[in-house]
Amino acid sequence: MKIVVKVEITSLITPEGKFDKKKLERLTMVLTNLRNSGIEILVVSSGAIFLGATKLGLENLPVERITKQAVAAVGQVELMKYYRYYFDMFNQVAAQILLTNDVINNPIRNRNTQNTLINLLSKKIIPIINENDSVSTDDIDLDDNYYMVLNVVSIVDAELIIVKSKENGKFLFIHRGNKFENIKVNENKLIETITNIQKKISYGKYLSEPFPPDFNKLFFHY
């Protein structure tokens, strides 16, 4: 079972708007536990611009595209530093993968990316994927990594998308079930819920539904 976990930096901040390390620590613990249970995990995480702005002491998030890309270059390093630090705490190895959305249309790059990701997963490593903001020509803000999630789902042929909810400890599930089922679960029920979905998939229940779902559908339901 392969699962793409979408992490938005907004789900990892304190009420005062600061980066909440404690929340990231919990998230890495929960993800490591999923990985330990035998599930293959890929993380698509935003946060480079936010952490870059924090690092540089900017009062507001940058608006101009060039500034955003520069700030993201600073913040991506920060983002990976934190991920690595907390995954290390639970003996989980993480890897950084920066992609641009054109990877999906270029067959050679698509294949290369697929090989790398599958290889990492086979070594029980959790890839942390983000848009390569510094070279990307897409509008960074607009899609908030949703296209990236869909690209990763189709590149590795994942079965499920999980979105870290802003509600503390909750996750949102998106799978190819009838009517595009969304389930919100507490982190303690994660493994149980995934096991149930896995059963349904292996019984062929969702075969007729397209996966990954299209962007509008995903966005709408979220």
């Binding site: 613990m29 330990n36 249970s37 035998g38």
Partner: peptide
């Protein structure tokens, strides 16, 4: 303390 594959179950320990 561990999953059926032998890996440690962190949430259980918690």
């Amino acid at each position: 303390l561990s999953f059926s594959n032998g890996r440690i179950n962190l949430q259980r320990i918690e």
